[in-house]
Design a protein around this nucleic acid. Structure first.
Lengths: 337, 337
DNA sequence: TTGTAGGCGTTATCAG
DNA sequence: CTGATAACGCCTACAA
C-alpha cells in the first residue's frame, strides 16, 4: 500500500505539501500539484481513512443500529441514512441488535470504539436503560434514538407522535361509522412506541365514547405477518373475528388480511382492517391497506438534521425530543357503515 | 476519551503491559491485570479501533456494496453478512451504488480507503469492467463478487447457476403441459445474471421443443413490481396477455399477479406466472407464487467461506468461480393442462 | 513479567 | 509556498 512516504520519495516533496494537495488546503505551486497527482496515479495511492481519523478529530463515520433486518421495515432506515451519508461525505457502519438487549449493548460498544461521529439507534427494549443513561453522560449528543425512546434517559430522539396517530385512527374509524375497535398487540417488551400507541387508542376511544378491546397475542414467531395470520386464522375458525381490527403494525395487518383472503372472509364487508405504517402494504393485493402513514422519512430527516445541528455546535437551542405527526392513508380495507 | 496514556498514569504500568492485558497476550501478573481493569472501569476507557487498525495489519472490517436497498431483496445480503461478521468479530461497512456505475466506483474507492479486509460487491453493470480488472491486480482476492460477475475480470465470485435454473423452470413448465412460454425481461444493462438466465430459457425451451417468446420491457420506473404491474395492465387491456409468463424476477411476477387480481384475470386458469427468487412472494396473497428459489443463503455462505479460506492463506486450491444451484418452489400460480 | 522505543498513515503547527 | 516534527492511540519487537 502506497502512502505519503512513497509519494514523498517519488516527488521529493514533504508530507505537509502532499497533504495540502490531497485536501485542497493552503496553496501549492501548480507544478507540485501535478507531480503529486502523477505519483498517486502511478503508485495506485489511496488514502487511509483509519489514519486520517486518528490524526484528525472526526472519522466521518455514522453508526446505525436497528433491532433486526429480517424484514422490510428497517431498510428504509438504511436507505435514508445511506443517502444522507453520501451527500455529506460520511461512511456508514451498520449492525443489528438481533432483538437482544445484550447484543444491543455489544454493538453500541463496537460502534463507539469505531469512533463514530454519531450513533443512530433504534433501541430494542428498556433493559439497557441504565447503560444508556450512563452513555448519555459520557457522550452527550453523540447518540440519537430513532423511532423509539427510553423514558428518563437523556438521549435526544425523534419518534412518531403515537398519541396523535391514535387520535387520527380512532377519529377515522368513528367517521366511518364504527363504535367499537379491537387493537391487536403483542406482549409488551417495555419499549415505548407501541405502548404509547396503545395508550392513545385506549384514551381516544374513551374520549369518543367507543368501545375498545385490547388483544394481546403471545407468540414465539418472529415474523409479524405470520403472527397476524395465525391470529386471524384462529379467530375465523372460532367465529370470533372482530368487526374492526387495528393492528399494531402493517405487517400484522397484512397477515390478518391474508388469512381473510385465504378463508374467504370479505374485507372490508365482514371485517375492517387498519394497519400502522406503510411498508408491506404497497405489495398487498388486490386491495390497498388502510393504514396510518407515520411519515418515517420525515422522522429520519429530523434525526439527521439534529445531528447536523449538533455538529454545527448549535448545542444550545436544539430540540432534543421530536414527535412526528403522520397521516391516515386511505385504502380499501375499512367499511363505511 | 481515555487512552493507554491515562491507564498508564493511573496504574503506573507501561503501554506494553496494558496492551497485553487488553488483548490477552503474553503473561501479566494477576495483580496488574486487575489494576488495568479497574482503571478501565473508572476511566470509561474504550479501545480505538482506528488506532488498532493502523497499528496492526487488519481493520476487522468487511465492506458490502449492493446496487440499491429500496426493496426487499438486498436485505438478505445484509442480514447474512451481519450475522457472519458478528460471529467472526468483524464490523460491517455498508453502501449502495445507487444503480449507477460512477457511484459504484466511488463507493469501492471509499471501501478500499477504509481498509476493509474484504469487499463483497454485487456489481451493477459492466461499465466498470476496466476498473475492476485493474483492481483485481492490485488487491488480489480482497474483493468478491456476489450474485453477479463480470466476464474476463479475474475477481472471484459466487453466482446463481442460471443455466441450471432455466433448465429447471422450463422442464417444470413442460411437465405442467405447456408448450409455450413468455420470458418477461427488462432492457439489458449488460450484467450477467439475468442475461444468462434468459439465454438459458431460450436454449432449454429450444431443447424441449417449446416455443419461447422474449418480451423486453422498457420503463423508466425503478420498482419492478410496478413495471410488472404496468406491463400486465397494458397486456390485459390489449387482450394479449400470454398464457405462461416467466418473469425475470419475483418482484415483477408479483406486479403481474397484482394486475391480474385487479382486473379479475384468474391465475393460474387464464395465465400462469412463474417468478424467480423468493423474496416478496411470502407476502403475496392469497396465492403463493410458483417460483425458482435460487438459494441465496447458500450463495452468500459460499462467498464468506471463500473469504475465510483466503484469510487462512489457502490461496492455492480455492474455488474462485462458484455457481449455485437452486430449486423450483411449488406455488399455486401455474396451471396443469 | 515489565518497560522502552519505533512505527502505522495522517494532520497540524510553526519555522523558514 | 515548503519542510520538519510532534501528535493521534495502539502494537510489537526487543531489552531489561
Amino acid at each position: 500500500m502506497a502512502s505519503y512516504k512513497q509519494i514523498a520519495e517519488r516527488t521529493g516533496l514533504s508530507f505537509g505539501t502532499i497533504s495540502n494537495v490531497l485536501n485542497g488546503k493552503g496553496s501549492v505551486k501548480e507544478e507540485n500539484v501535478k507531480k503529486v497527482y502523477e505519483a498517486i496515479e502511478e503508485l495506485d495511492y489511496r488514502p487511509n481513512y483509519q489514519a486520517k481519523a486518528l490524526a484528525s478529530d472526526s472519522a466521518k463515520l455514522l453508526g446505525v443500529i436497528v433491532p433486526s433486518i429480517n424484514d422490510v421495515r428497517e431498510t428504509e432506515v438504511f436507505s435514508y441514512m445511506e443517502e444522507f451519508a453520501r451527500s455529506k461525505g460520511y461512511r456508514i457502519m451498520l449492525s443489528t441488535s438481533h432483538n437482544s438487549a445484550k447484543e444491543e449493548k455489544n454493538q453500541c460498544e463496537i460502534m463507539l470504539s469505531s469512533q463514530v461521529d454519531c450513533l443512530f439507534i433504534m433501541p430494542y427494549s428498556s433493559e439497557n436503560k441504565e447503560y444508556f443513561r450512563r452513555l448519555s453522560e459520557q457522550m452527550r449528543d453523540r447518540i440519537i434514538f430513532i423511532n423509539r425512546y427510553l423514558e428518563d434517559v437523556d438521549i435526544p430522539f425523534t419518534v412518531v407522535d403515537n398519541d396523535y396517530a391514535a387520535m387520527e385512527m380512532i377519529q377515522y374509524i368513528y367517521k366511518m361509522g364504527h363504535r367499537k375497535v379491537t387493537f391487536l398487540d403483542l406482549k409488551d417488551r417495555g419499549i415505548s412506541s407501541v405502548r404509547d400507541r396503545r395508550k392513545g387508542i385506549i384514551r381516544w376511544s374513551a374520549e369518543m365514547n367507543m368501545e375498545c378491546e385490547i388483544k394481546e397475542i403471545e407468540s414465539t414467531l418472529e415474523d409479524e405477518v405470520m403472527i397476524g395470520y395465525q391470529y386471524a386464522e384462529q379467530a375465523i375458525r372460532n367465529q370470533e373475528l372482530p368487526k374492526v381490527i387495528l393492528a399494531r403494525d402493517d405487517a400484522m395487518a397484512i397477515g390478518v388480511y391474508s388469512a381473510c383472503m385465504q378463508y374467504q372472509v370479505s374485507v372490508p364487508e365482514t371485517v375492517s382492517i387498519v394497519g400502522f405504517g406503510k411498508y408491506y402494504s404497497d405489495y398487498m393485493t388486490p386491495k390497498k391497506l388502510t393504514t396510518f402513514n407515520r411519515d418515517f422519512k420525515s422522522l429520519l430527516k429530523q434525526a439527521t438534521d439534529m445531528f447536523l445541528a449538533i455538529t454545527n455546535g448549535e448545542t444550545e437551542h436544539i430540540q432534543r425530543k421530536i414527535f412526528i405527526k403522520g397521516y391516515m392513508e386511505n385504502g380499501a380495507t375499512v367499511q363505511k357503515v
